[in-house]
Write a protein that binds this DNA or RNA. Structure first.
Lengths: 187, 187
DNA sequence: CAGCTGCGGCTAATGCCATTAGCTTCTGAG
DNA sequence: CTCAGAAGCTAATGGCATTAGCCGCAGCTG
């Protein structure tokens, strides 16, 4: 092997830091290369193209998120697990708002697989409610929709009023937990 | 006035049709100009730049949505209004998935104002629950988060499993309505 | 009716960016 | 010591947004 100054992981890392600091719009290969102290075309030795870099970033983000959330849910069940899950998710977004809005859900298998880990954690947390499989899948989707929607809107600064976001999120958690507990008698 | 073949509105219209048919990635000034039967720089006579075109598109989309939803909510109250609101929103997304994912929530005042119309409609629908103002604002945010999250995930094709999306959305509506009805005793 | 003015179009030019081609250099295995 | 290949580089290409500056026509003015 030749000098291993750089690697795919290292490039992704630089790109993530760039996005954290300067926002998703600042993500260009030129900027990443400059930060990595390398000429732009050199990046192609580690990453197929910009689209792949984006995908790799998404995978990394989802893995981070999955690790944190997996830990948070561990040992809790039902309502407490859901609360922990949602709280942890939001903490991540607050910590890295730009990073979250750089997330792309492409149909790429690599990204899909990383997303699957998150879905699995949610499904596991929902098993505690004694749902059958199909029911749990619907519930997972709702959970995802609620969290993701909130996260995206917050990352985009779409909540302008002075009301505290933490309180809103408490209400959202309450909605989800209540909705999971209350039987659905065919809408 | 000289020949009025084109106008800002017409450009936005062409751009929206382009996005509907070819997806958000196809939105380039070159493509819009070509569809409009005009040279690229001519667009600048009607639109300041690409960013402004995007913002104008978002405004147009939100206005469409607000008009539909306003009509759907009219004359219904409480749960029924919320159900109608959520159903109508989703219908729009299903009809124009690309268009929805082209939505940008910039901090631009123009876009914010259009978003405000939507928020106002939601707030009005929530008044029926007898909430005080601040409570209604938190509830509106949750409503938005849930709908927007679901819409974004669906537009991105993030729901892969065979379970029917309509059923999931019914569950989401149920969650929201139940959550609004059930008192929050401090999380 | 002649002339002016400004709008809305055009062509040409610039500069950034992603991507490709092809050369060079350094490293580590044999 | 040699050699292969990995990882870097420079140069070149083509797409795109954006800017500058020119042209012609509509409609008002005299």
């Amino acid at each position: 092997m030749a000098r291993a100054a750089l690697s795919a992981d290292a490039v992704v890392d630089v790109a993530l830091r760039l996005v954290d600091e300067e926002g998703p719009a600042a993500l260009t290969l030129a900027a990443v290369a400059s930060r990595a102290g390398v000429a732009t075309p050199s990046l192609y030795k580690h990453v197929r193209n910009l689209a792949e870099l984006r995908a790799l970033m998404s995978v990394q983000i989802m893995d981070d998120l999955a690790e944190r959330i997996g830990g948070a849910v561990l040992g809790r069940s039902a309502d407490e697990a859901i609360r922990a899950l949602m709280t942890t998710w939001r903490e991540y977004v607050v910590e890295h708002p730009h990073r979250y809005s750089a997330l792309v859900q492409t149909p790429e298998p690599m990204v899909a697989r990383a997303g699957q880990r998150l879905v699995d954690i949610m499904l596991a947390a929902l098993r505690a409610y004694g749902m059958e499989e199909s029911e749990a899948i619907h519930a997972t989707r709702c959970l995802r929709a609620a969290m993701h929607g909130f996260a995206v809107l917050q990352a985009e600064n779409a909540f302008q009023l002075p009301e505290k976001l933490d309180e809103t999120y408490d209400l959202l958690i309450h909605m989800v937990v209540t909705g999971l507990r209350t039987p659905l008698h065919r809408t």
